[in-house]
């Protein structure tokens, strides 16, 4: 992204879409890189429920992590998408990834498709 962006207005919480125009989550957090020779730089966008929970309260994020480890079949660890892959697309952010091929993205969605939805009649499988 070249032009100046307001981090809170234009990046945080914005919808992310991949190369196939698939909605792949929201910018749940931003990762800043502190530099000695200049102002902080936005290094990546973070996507994931734990990042989101941390914004409400760190304790909520800890509980969510414990619950997810105990009960969920897949990891809900947050994913970092480098800022170099991101560009503005209207009010959304387009990310130069293919979410269905990238194993880090949509882990719960893919697990649910494979283990639940695909086994039900009428799912379109």
């Amino acid at each position: 992204m070249d032009k100046t962006l307001d981090l809170v207005r234009d990046v945080l919480d914005v919808q992310l879409i991949d190369n196939a125009d698939c909605r792949i989550g929201r910018a749940d957090g931003v990762v800043l890189e502190l530099r000695q020779d200049g102002p902080p730089r936005v290094a990546a966008i973070e996507v994931g429920a734990i990042t989101l929970a941390r914004r409400i309260h760190p304790t909520l994020a800890r509980w969510l992590r414990v619950l997810a480890i105990r009960w969920l079949p897949v990891s809900i660890r947050s994913v970092r998408l480098p800022m170099s892959l991101c560009r503005e697309s209207g009010v959304d952010i387009a990310v130069d990834v293919d979410a269905h091929a990238d194993r880090r993205l949509l882990r719960l969605e893919k697990w649910l498709i494979r283990h639940v939805v695909q086994r039900l009649p009428g799912s379109g499988a």
């Binding site: 919808q15 909605r23 792949i24 719960l108 695909q118 799912s123 379109g124």
Partner: peptide, 20 residues
């Protein structure tokens, strides 16, 4: 809210979390 893919015009296999 969570930025998932959604739409009742899609088949459940295309947006499992929405259908579930």
């Amino acid at each position: 809210t969570f930025g998932w893919d959604w739409g009742e015009n899609k088949r459940p296999i295309e947006e499992a979390r929405f259908a579930l």
